[in-house]
Amino acid sequence: MDLLAATDIIIPTKLLVWFGLACFFTALGCSQVGTFLVMRKMSLVGDAISHSVLPGIVLAFLVVGTLDSPWLLIGAGLSGVLATLLIELIHYRSRIKQDAAIGISFTSLFALGVLLIGLKAGKVDLDPDCVIFGQVEYLQGYPRVEWWGLEFPRPLVSFAVVGVSATVVVAVLYRILLVSSFDPSLAASYGYFPAVVQLVLMGLTSFVVVSAFQAVGAILVIALLILPGATAYLCANRLPMILLLAGVHALLSSVGGVWLALSLGINTGAAVVLAGGGLFTLAWLFGPVDGVVVRLWMRRRAGEGREPVSACE
């Protein structure tokens, strides 16, 4: 944010494209994985994971010293899986219900992560603010790479790799995820062990969460995971369509969000989420399947259909 304020000149188009692409790739991966979280009623497990990866990221960062290393992904993946294991451990081995188990696990891991940052505060360039706010704006401070004559900051490449590969993994596992989300017993009879599918999904979530973490900050990751899927769910009935619309939501909210951020001078992550929230509200009101207007209209039409019958009597 300060970086932007300091430049305080007309934002070059290049910067706009960079921010937009960074947000889009991040949101794309999250939207595809997150749609399944919404379908499986596990949105808040996604939230828990997005907070729980913090200690893994911080530890990996303290060891390797840069923010765009694959070790961060591994660290995050491990602590994400640790979070799911803790939830199960508390939930199955005591009388504590699942919702409380989620709360206990993710707050503990998040606190651990913040504490680690606090202990090292000032010594490394990882500060609590980037955990809360994300740091798309810092993209321009990174070294550039050249590709086909175009210039990109290096983290953008890793955002793209994560976003695209998550989408590809979801496409490859599509059938398994579909069956196990909607008919667990059928999935089990096919030999897709529910526990394994669950763990894969959690691993995938941790994977996309890491780049989302850097883009919009720990707290808003949940928005990138949930908003696209929830919005698409109000607009379509079939899963392929829902996934496609979730991708469109990711694109629109990224572009709209970056535009909003740069024109109003607000935090990019928050702006992307607000744009996504705006799209959600539109879908809520006008969504072709489950929108408020459609429902009212159908109710009225149903009412009209009955009227002649009562007139006959």
Binding site: L44, G46, L220, I226, N267, G269, A270, F280
Partner: peptide, 17 residues
Amino acid sequence: DARLGVVLSVFFAGGIA
């Protein structure tokens, strides 16, 4: 769960904005 997630994140983003 999805409703909570949507409200949580959009409201918080509003605060940051």
